[in-house]
Each structure stands twice: as C-alpha cells, then as structure tokens.
Write a protein that binds this DNA or RNA. Structure first.
Length: 493
RNA sequence: GGCCCGUUCGUCUAGGGGCUAGGACGUCACCCUCUCACGGUGAAAACAGGGGUUCAAUUCCCCUACGGGCUACCA
C-alpha cells in the first residue's frame, strides 16, 4: 500500500433500524481508519426510494453515535440532533448524487461498457419463468446488448422507458483480491449484465456505491460477505474508468444459534434494542469486535481505543460467527462493575421505585446487587423486598433446618438488641456488622446457621438473598428492626 | 439447480507439519459460606469424513459431506 491516507466508510441504506451486523461492519471500518490516523465516513445509500423509512437516517446516526462510532466525515447528527453533512467530498447522501451517477453511466455507455435496455418488466418476468421451467440458469439474455445505435437514440428520443445495463465480458475470468479471503476467481460468462441505472433514473448499488467510493477517495471497502458475488461488477466499473482499486474486505456473517444468517425471528438484531435494554456501549463494542476478529492471545477485555490500536484486516476470520448472547451478558456484567459509582447509580436509579424518597437507601440497594446484574433493569426484581410495605413469610421457613421456632424467636430478639447498639459509623458498614454479630453469636454459644438464617430470612422474606450483614447495612437500623418485628409478629401469631 | 465462500470444545476463538491442541462464555464439581451471587480451584468438552504429500499432518493439496452467501430496475 502507498502511504496515502486511509479512508473507510460505512454505507447503510436507511430502511429501518441499524442491524447489529451493520454495527460490526461500521466498527471495523472505524477501527481501521483510527489505527492509521485516517478518516471514517458515513454515507447514506438511499437510491431505493421504495424502501425508504422516515426517520431512519436520524436513528442510524444516533445509534452509531451512542456507540462511539461517530463518523469523522459525511452524514452525522449535529448538537441539536439534526441530520447534517460535513466534508469536502459531499454530498454524502446518494439520492443527492443522481446527476453524478447519470454522468458516469453515460460515460460507460460512450465507452461501450454499458448500454441502454428497453426490456419491459413483463418480458423479463417471462424470460425468467422460461429459464426456470427449462432448468436453465436465470439471468438477462442480452436482448438489448447490441441494438443499433441510431435505433437506441430514436427510442430514447421518443421517451421510451429504459434502464442502463453493464456490458460485461462474455468470456474469460476475473480475480478478486480480498484481504480476508485471498484471490477469488469468477467466470465472466456466469455474471449478468447488471442494471446500473433504473428506469426512474436512480442508480443501483453497483454504480452508485463504486462511483461514490471513488469520488470519496475510499481506500478500503469493508462490507458484508453477501457482496462478494457482485464484486466482479464492481471491479469492472473501477477498471472501465481506470481508477485505482480499493482494498476489498468481505466480512463473515453474524449468525443465529442455528447458524443461519442473524435474523429478527431469533432475537434482537436492532442495535438500538440492545442499547435500550441497558447493554453498555463498551460491552457491545468489545463483544462485536471479537465476533469474527481476534488480535491473538488470551485477553477478553479491550477498550475501544485498544481495539483501534490492535486492529488489522488480516486477522479477520473467514467463517461466520454465532451471536453468543451469554458472552455478551457476561461482558455487560463486567463493564457494569467497572463503571464509576456515580455513573452506575445514575443507570440504576430509574429502575428503583420513584415513590421511595430516601436516595441514600436507594443507592445502597443499587450498590448491593451490583455484581449480580447483567442489565440495570434487573435491579427491580432483586430489590423488590426492600421496598415492600410488608413481607410475606408464609412461603419461607424462618427457622434453621430442624431447629425450633422458639429458637428462631430467641435469636431474632437477640439480634434486635445487637442492631440497636450499633453506632452511627457502624450502621451502614456490613463488614463491621459482621464482626460484631459473629462475636455476639459466639459469646452466646450459638451457631452461625441457626442465628443468621432466621435473621436473614426475617430481613428479606426470601430463601435466597445477600447476607444479613449486608441487609442490615443497607436497610439501616430502623428499617431492620421493623422487619424483624414483622417476622416476630408472624411467628408469635 | 448454477456460481462463490466456509468447517478447531455447545458457543466465541488461539495455534499451526512434531504441542498433554491453549484461553474465554456456558455447564458440572469442590472450596469459601447462614442462603444466593461474587471470588478461588478443578473437571467434562474440539481439529467434519476420506484420500494424498511427508519420516511426521489438526496444520499443505484434492475429493466428499455439511453449513452459508449470491443468483432483482433491494441494498
């Protein structure tokens, strides 16, 4: 490679949500640009008017920016959240480049590398059906490939509807050099004369994307594997114009559990859904980066910056990768635990009852369950008993194993006096509380189990919960004593 | 059907002509322990199959099987 500046791009079409696979494609493009001090740009491919979804561009940009995959150039969201463009190579929205695409198409026609085609949709449909019935490969039969020039001019002058097709070689082969897959050879005779300008005047992907990649000085075309089969057409266009080819990298697909292409049916594929559920951007980035690429070694955790430093196209895997939600969950828990307390608390607070006014109490609860959470929203289930007016003890056993109820009552009464004696410094210190209570238990000659179990169940109303020391520290003495009284009342009833 | 791509534990992967094939998630066991979670220790778990090449193939080549992508006036 020459030392020219690396320029990569992510070029989605605004047909709805941002697919999680698209996020990875965008991420790799950004990572490569970052690594080489280059430019990562966002271009919107909206040449198919029929599939346009209102608001999709904003949504796309917002999701990308939330994930810190903000483009250096091209389409982006300004401070007010409005869609704008920046950069010298614009416009970056393909529908605004129609005239440019038209000009390139005419040049191709002039060079005899493309031709107008007047075939109707009906004729094409008939052709396909005949081919299918006779079990021949489907494809355009070249009906308009060699029309008389004068006839073509007349028909166009008469306003006859037409498209422009590529005039591909009929023999020989073409070799695509892909950084990930090496040389891939295709026979020209098997490749269709692809439509590059539709009858509505809009270019198709094949022309639009190549023309724009060239005009925007893209050095590395990073895209999904589904494009590999059409790469010959793209190389043909580049070579027809004598343009220097970009580096091609066709990424392996992200798959469902059953190895089919990741689809909506089998889980969430929209990046925004993950964000909304509470998956953290660094966790998502870490996870996606390692889905199909690995810098070698045994590390699992990488920051966005570290990824940019280590990234390289050559180490991308060839095989598709199953989207492993379990691992994403593990990563999210990991990143949740790494968050500064302030940020963590801000994330959790919305999931705690708004009616509870004691913010300190709520914060202690949030911190208590931190290592158990995969998603912030899960706090509401874990912490439910803290906010309940009354606990229901009927479903749990307050006495330890085969110990008696009277024994449980005795231990709970003792615990009340211990809690009442806690100093202000001790009352929210689980460690100190543990030392004190264990010491008291020992002086009494009691056992940890027969004392701590009733105490913990009295405080939580549940068989499974954090330790009684943590519960006391989280509740504070007043609420702790009230809970124990509730349990006592239940036992003495 | 045709063309193209792929195949290391269940999953993500490391490795690469000679290794006890390594790590992570998940699973299981044990430890810690009043329960759960965390943490610690350990276990089960893979080179798709068949031919070559080679002193030696999981690694290189070929074939088969299986999986996937493409086969639009969609991207």
């Amino acid at each position: 490679m020459s030392d020219k500046r690396v320029r990569t791009r992510f070029a989605p079409s605004p047909t709805g949500f941002l697919h999680i696979g698209g996020v990875r494609t965008a991420l790799y493009a950004q990572l490569l640009a970052k690594k080489h001090g280059g430019i990562f740009l966002l271009r919107v491919e909206d040449t198919d008017q029929a599939r346009m979804v209102p608001g999709a561009v904003e949504n796309l940009c917002r999701t990308l920016q939330q994930l810190n995959i903000t483009p250096d150039e091209g389409v982006w969201l300004d401070e007010n959240g409005a869609v704008t463009e920046r950069g010298e190579h614009g416009p970056y929205t393909q529908s605004k480049r129609q005239a440019i695409h038209q000009k390139y198409a005419q040049e191709l026609v002039a060079m005899d590398k493309a031709y107008p085609c007047f075939c109707t949709a009906e004729r094409l449909e008939e052709l396909r059906q005949t081919q299918e019935i006779t079990k021949r490969p489907t494809g355009y039969d070249g009906h308009c490939r060699n029309l008389d020039k004068q006839e073509v001019q007349n028909r166009i002058a008469n306003g006859e509807k037409h498209v422009i097709r590529l005039k591909l070689p009929k023999e020989g082969s073409v070799t695509i050099n892909d950084v990930i897959r090496g040389d891939v050879i295709f026979d020209w005779k098997l490749i269709d004369d692809q439509v590059i300008i539709k009858s509505d005047g809009m270019a198709t992907y094949h022309l639009a994307s190549m023309a724009d990649d060239h005009d925007m000085a893209i050095t590395h075309v990073i895209r999904g594997e589904e494009w590999l089969s059409s790469a010959p057409k793209h190389v043909f266009i580049y070579e027809a114009f004598g343009w220097e080819l970009p580096v091609f990298a066709h990424l392996p697909l992200i798959l469902n559990q059953d190895k089919s292409k990741l689809s909506k049916r089998q889980g969430d594929v929209a990046a925004e859904d993950y964000l909304q559920k509470g998956y953290l951007p660094p966790a998502l980035i870490n996870f996606l980066a390692l889905l199909g690429w690995n810098p070698s070694g045994e590390r699992e955790i990488y920051s966005h910056d570290e990824l940019a430093e280590l990234f390289n196209l050559e180490k991308i895997n060839k095989a598709g990768a199953v989207f492993n939600l379990e691992k994403l969950n593990w990563l999210n828990n990991h990143y949740l635990r790494l968050l500064p307390d302030e940020e963590y608390l801000a994330l959790i607070n919305p999931h705690l009852p708004a009616a509870e006014q004691d913010l300190e109490f709520k914060n202690r609860i949030a911190l208590l369950f931190r290592e158990r959470l995969i998603l912030p929203s899960e706090i509401s289930v874990w912490s439910e008993f803290f906010f309940a007016d009354k606990l229901d003890y009927s479903a749990v056993k307050l006495n330890w194993k085969d110990h008696s109820t009277n024994e449980a009552i005795e231990r709970l009464k003792a615990a009340k006096t211990w809690i009442a004696e806690l100093t202000e410094e001790q009352e929210h210190d689980a460690g100190a509380i543990e030392t004190i209570i264990k010491d008291k238990i020992q002086t009494q000659g009691w056992g940890n189990g027969d004392t701590l179990w009733p105490l913990r169940v009295a405080l939580s109303g549940a068989e499974k919960s954090p330790s009684p020391f943590e519960l006391i520290a989280t509740y504070g003495p007043k609420r702790s004593l009230a809970r124990i009284d509730e349990a006592l009342a239940f036992l003495l009833k």
